[in-house]
Simulated assay, not measured.
Amino acid sequence: MAYKVLVVDDSTFFRRRVAEILDQEPGLEVVGQARNGKEALTLTEQLDPDVITMDVEMPIMDGITAVGKIMAQSPRPIIMFSSLTHEGAQATLDALDAGALDFLPKKFEDIAQDRKEAVTLLRQKVKSLARKRHFMPSRPRASLRQRPLTPTARPDTTRPTPSGESQRRQPLRASGKSYKVLAIGASTGGPVALQQILSNLPANFPYPVLLVQHMPGTFTKAFAERLDGLCKIRVKEAAQGDVLKPGHAYLAPGGTQMLMEGNPQQCSIKIIQEATISGVTYKPSVDLSFASLGRIFGGDVLAIVLTGMGADGREGCRSLKQKGATIWAQDEKTSVVYGMPQAVASAGLSSKDLPIDQVVEHVLAEMKVSG
């Protein structure tokens, strides 16, 4: 049975274009089209689509408002179409905060180098998100603009179980390894996952954090600024020559590659602007950044691969693992798309496969950080 898709956009031409592309994909069926957010609410109730594509700027009711209402009433996967501008980035991040799971540039030439590749990516993303329908929460999650629960104020682990018995959670045990850096790679679903992790790290986190998120360049700057306003540690878009500092997170700029140079005592960031490298698809690439970290820090790296489509990160993790680094992956249930973490887990590289809401406590225990 085909997944049902609702296409929402105020442009008749764009609605038809997206509908034709998706209808030609086996396993997908466009069951309705809406001109604005208000119509989208009505058709969502009537047609019960498995996934919705949503424009940001529309008359009567904009996409961000519509996403919030849909996720409050009947949560389901939503993918946003947005412009590659700073304003478009801010609006898209607002939509992700409201509950959307992913986004794509509205101009197909910004999605990929040729139309065929862009069409394939659109179909893959819609189909991947549609599969997530049955894993959506029955009620909306709290807005990620609200500061999540910090590690120093975790809930009581002696809370009664459904059977009425009290059960204390077993204390986490560190492996005993030493570390010099935390590295995290992500793609589809990554902005929300990264925000959940980073906003829970304490201000005294004694290691630098390297972040590689598949995202356009105009988006990474806006995303880093938003994270910096939400987190206790400092977060910035990485720049050429940045020297790694404890308690600072560096987000790889979109459309470039972020590498490391120097030595463990004085490591700095190298940004390659001409980011087309043979055999490398993503800009930025988790594989390249992780492998570069290994050349500087050897096994003193804790690397985590989060939700995302594809397999970027697997070879970088393999390189790190060979040097003795610790590799973890997000579990399938909490991943928006279980592609990148599955690639790492299936290759036997990850020693832990964790739900997103347990990542921070495991990081703090493993890296011996008090909250």
Rank of each mutant, 00 (worst) to 15 (best):
P137M: 13
K232R: 15
R115Q: 10
Q322W: 02
F81I: 01
I271A: 13
G190Q: 09
Q196P: 00
F290R: 00
R35D: 01
S199A: 15
A252G: 05
S82H: 14
A2Y: 08
A275R: 07
A186T: 08
L320Y: 12
E39L: 11
T85N: 00
K38I: 09
R147I: 07
E117K: 11
K180F: 03
V181W: 12
Q24R: 04
G299Y: 02
R133M: 02
M215Y: 07
G324K: 06
T334E: 01
V301Y: 10
E261L: 10
I304E: 03
K245D: 00
R168G: 09
G88T: 01
F297C: 02
Q46N: 10
E225V: 00
G316I: 01
E109T: 14
I64F: 03
Y3L: 08
V119A: 03
L47Y: 06
A347V: 07
G294W: 05
L230M: 01
R17Y: 15
K132I: 00
S11Y: 00
K352I: 13
A89K: 08
D353H: 15
S178K: 15
G310F: 04
V280R: 03
A275H: 03
G164W: 03
A203Y: 10
S143Q: 11
A238M: 13
S166I: 14
V344P: 12
K323Q: 09
S166M: 14
T188L: 05
A347L: 08
C317K: 13
P75F: 10
P253Y: 08
V56R: 04
E225Y: 02
L302C: 09
G27T: 13
A34P: 02
A303D: 08
L293H: 09
